[in-house]
Every structure is written in C-alpha cells, then in structure tokens.
Design a protein around this nucleic acid. Structure first.
Lengths: 192, 192
DNA sequence: CCAACTTTGTACCATATGGTACATGTACCA
DNA sequence: TGGTACATGTACCATATGGTACAAAGTTGG
C-alpha cells in the first residue's frame, strides 16, 4: 500500500526518514533546516515536496497514524483468542522499549492536537474512534450489549494509554505490568 | 502559601495571568512577545522577572503542578469515604469542562516532557509519583498488601488519565462516564 | 538529439524571535 | 531632601526561520 496515491519515491523516502527523525527529536521545536540536515537534504527540498513546514508535519503525522492503524488491524486479524489475551498481547507489544520513541511522539502529537495545532486535525478526529470501533466489536463478540461493550472498550483503551503515559514517564515496566494484570484480573472477575 | 519564597506581587500577578493565558493558547508555539501582549506587559518585563523565555515556562509549569497537588491534597483530606467514591469524585471534578483548558495544557506539557524539553524536568519527575504515593496509601487503607495496592493505584491513575485523554479529544462525557462506571463496577466486584 | 518535465542547488528576502544596553520612572526609607 | 533599589520603557542587535525566485542539472519520452 502506498503512503498516498501518487507519491514519488524520493518523497516517500524523505517521509520515511522524517518519521524516524521526528520519533527521536519530537516535532515541537524542530525547524525545517534542522530536519533537512538530519535527513541529508536541504530545507528547500522539504518545501518542494511537501509544500511547507506544516505540510511536512501533516505528512509525518498522517503517516504515523497510518502505521498505527496497520498494526491495530494486524492485531485484530488474529481473533481466535479472548479479549483478555488480546489486551495482554497489545500491552506487551506497546510497552516494548523499542517502540518508546514512537509512543513519545504519539503523546506529543496528542498534546498538540488538544491545543488545536493545524497539522493534527485528522489525527485528533481519529485518535479515539479508530481504536474504539474495532475494540467495541471485539467486546461485543463476548455477548455484551452494545453500550456496555463500548464502555468496556473505551475503558481498555484508556487503561492502555494511561499506563503507557506512566511507563514513558517512569520507565517502570514491572510496576506498569502489575497494574495491567490487575486490570485484566478485575475484568475477568467481573465478566463471570 | 506563596508561589515561591520571595516573589514580588508584580511577578506573581504576571505568573497568574501567564498560567491562564497558556491554559488557553498552549505553550507550544507561543513567543515571549505574544504572551506579553496578552498579559498586558512587554516581553522586556517577562525577561526581567523570569530571566528568559525558558524561565517563564518553568515558572508556569511549576505553578501548574503546584496547583494540581493542592487539589489532590484537598481531595485526599476528605478521607471518610471509600476509594470507589473517591475515584468517582475525582473523575467528576476532573471531567468538568471548566477544567478542560488546564487539562489540555497538562497533556501538552506531558508530551513535551516526554520529549525531554528543558522546562519540564521537575514536572516529569513528579508526574506519576506525586499522585501514585498518596493513592497507594488510600488503597492500603483497604487492607491490600503494598504491591497490590500500588498496582491498583497505578491502574486508577491510568484510567483517569486515559479517560481524560479520550474526553478531551472526543468531548463525549456520557461515553467516558460510562467507561469510568464500568471501571468502578469491576473494581467493586473484584474487591469483594 | 531534442524538448518537456521533474528534481535539486544557490542565493536571497522579509519577518519574528530572544535577549540586552541604556535610560527613565517610581516608591520607599533615612 | 536625597538616594537607593526596584520596575518599566525604548531601541536595538544578531540570529534563525519559512519561503521563494532563479537557474542548473538530471530524467524521460518522442
């Protein structure tokens, strides 16, 4: 699947490197020139390919979202398991330190989106629903009525994101794993 | 309690207005001059009182944290109730739309802190522990052993923050309330 | 080989920024 | 009264930024 319809290879390569760069440096206080240097190009080229600085940011954020949804879809495809186990797997994947830079980026952009920064419009609209809808379906498979399924899905999403915030701030994997297990246990007990 | 030892009235007034301004406009793409205009002063004055732009940001973020902890302490002082009810009250207070600007700011700063921005150092260090420690105590009052109490407190904090993220993005108070109630219900059931 | 098009490089511009040197004002205390 | 410390205003600076005009180089298709 192409990043977008009609994107030149050069542009796609730049976008790729831009996402990687931004995951490490954030996109809060990065200038076109700094980014261009780090990407081995010139700010002139970023302007050329993406139209403007905002254009670069929009592209990066959208690409980032696209990748997230891809992962989400992959995780849901394997549906021969219980929601508990699915949640545990999801947490195990997301709490992997290798993904921390991307998750820091995610929350940085989340914060910017809440402040209404332009390049995050689409991101903000999808930030809950794109996860909530499939998660609700999973909960409904357990026979829960729609509204309760939705509430439980929402709760699960909140727990994952809340614990990720904790983990990224404290680095305390053990403590956060304990909390996630406590959640799963309470769910299991209240499902029965 | 003074904001800090030895802060002039003028400075304290500026800080107060700065916090209010930043809660509305964020502090991601704000310049000294913009802020100064909005505060009815000049960027010269902000530099004078706070030393530098970073100095302003540090002061704002610390003041913001101070107020949060104050609220937290007030909430904990009234301890003649169950953790469930305490959690519900906390949620009800935090989910009040009047506080949304401050909460948006909180998450914006959280995102910046995760990216290692200078003015957020203290904030990041305290962002989990300053809530986790008292919350753990509350859970321990219920007779839970330390580690489980800590896990449950951590979980509660994650739920609150995760649902706040959801609420700020979607504005769906009803949906988020449902999720919080689902959480409280599952806790109650697994406590018994 | 040429022509049209895409991609890069160079050089520049207007602007906004954070910071500061210097002067002026203001309040309070001796 | 004078003086001393704090507060504010004015004006300026060096720098970095986003953007772009213009030209050169590369690429592709006829």
């Amino acid at each position: 699947m192409p990043k977008q319809l009609e994107m030149s290879d050069a542009k796609a390569a730049l976008l790729d490197k831009a996402v990687a760069f931004v995951a490490v440096h954030g996109l809060g206080d990065v200038s076109l020139r700094q980014m261009a240097n780090a990407l081995g190009t010139s700010h002139r080229m970023l302007s050329y390919h993406f139209g403007s600085k905002e254009g670069v940011f929009v592209a990066v954020v959208n690409e980032m979202e696209r990748r997230q949804l891809e992962q989400m879809a992959a995780l849901d495809a394997d549906d021969a398991t219980t929601p508990d186990e699915l949640l545990r797997r999801m947490w195990r994947r997301l709490s992997d330190p290798k993904l921390w830079p991307h998750e820091r980026l995610f929350f940085e952009v989340y914060g910017q989106a809440l402040q209404g920064r332009a390049h995050t419009k689409q991101f903000l609209d999808d930030i809950v629903d794109s996860w909530l809808v499939p998660a609700t379906e999973i909960a409904q498979r357990q026979g829960l009525p729609k509204r309760e399924a939705r509430a439980r899905a929402r709760l699960g999403l909140a727990v994952v994101r809340g614990l990720l915030l904790d983990l990224l701030a404290t680095g305390d994997r053990k403590g956060c794993n304990d909390a996630m297990e406590a959640f799963i246990a309470s769910l299991a007990r209240s499902t029965v």
